[in-house]
């Protein structure tokens, strides 16, 4: 079998906020087309880990490789890296002064210098993909939370990233809107997108995840296939966590 390409490799990653040690010697590898789901209680460091992968947070020590290239925040052009690593936020962070389509084409036009007509064409295709063709010229304030998040996904995809990071993409949604966002993410996973997802949706983790990572107190406690980790957790703390949420 052909060796799977390493999309992300994290070694001995540490992150401090002042005196607070939020990530402790994290090691993590994400292969091409893998969906890795990070689970754990609030404050366990999973969002910080995700943000370090996009360099919205800068690591204190350790190494991060993106597509087999070591990224040193002081030396590497992070804007170039971020073009390949898309990010979807808990609170969508759509640009409220731009229409749905303008949100989607902003990156391609401003960053990738794609001609406007091409960007619009591709933007419309992406909106169709996330089921929002009819909302192209609407402002975000007119959308439901689920629709906003699907636009945010389309906005990230417009940059044609190799990796997508999701930071609790459904946590700010009303329960009835969670499904539509998860469906979009599932389609993306089926197309072979490499994804790292922080979520509390255990159903999604089990069904879509290739790997599940349980974090506690800034450390990775357990790592495994979803059925192993959910059905036969080895670590006591994983058992406690799963027991408390299921």
């Amino acid at each position: 079998m052909e060796k799977q390409k390493e999309m992300i490799r994290v070694e001995k990653l540490n992150k401090y906020f002042g005196d607070l040690h939020v990530l402790k010697d994290i090691n993590l590898t994400v292969g091409e087309s893998d969906v890795v789901v990070l689970i754990g209680a609030s404050g366990s460091g999973k969002s910080t880990l995700l943000r370090c992968l996009n360099f919205l947070e800068i690591k204190t020590s350790g190494t991060i490789q993106i597509e087999e290239e070591t990224v040193e925040p002081t030396k590497t052009n992070l804007n170039k890296i971020r073009q390949r690593v898309g990010m979807v936020f808990q609170h969508f962070n759509l640009f409220p002064h731009k229409t749905v389509l303008q949100n989607v084409i902003e990156g391609p036009i401003q960053v990738n210098k794609v001609p406007k007509a091409t960007a619009i064409q591709e933007g419309k295709e992406l909106l169709e993909k996330v089921g929002l063709s009819d909302k192209a010229n609407v402002y975000p304030s007119k959308l439901s939370g689920g629709q906003k998040q699907r636009v945010a996904i389309a906005r990230s995809l417009a940059m044609k990233p190799d990796i997508m990071l999701f930071d609790e993409p459904t946590s700010a949604l009303d329960p009835e809107l969670v499904g539509e966002v998860l469906t979009t993410m599932k389609e993306l996973a089926n197309e072979g997108m490499t994804m790292v997802v922080v979520t509390h949706e255990m159903g999604f983790a089990r069904e879509v995840g290739d790997w599940v990572v349980y974090m506690h107190d800034g450390k990775i406690i357990e790592y495994g296939k979803p059925n192993e980790l959910f059905d036969q957790p080895k670590e006591e703390r994983t058992q406690e966590f799963l027991g408390s949420i299921l």
Partner: peptide, 23 residues
């Protein structure tokens, strides 16, 4: 203007000046 707007701009690869100017 919330920090989330800046982060969203930076996350699609915009420079800090592009994010300031456009977002």
């Amino acid at each position: 203007i919330g920090n989330g707007q800046t982060e969203a701009g930076r996350s699609i690869g915009m420079t800090s000046w592009q994010t300031m100017k456009r977002i």
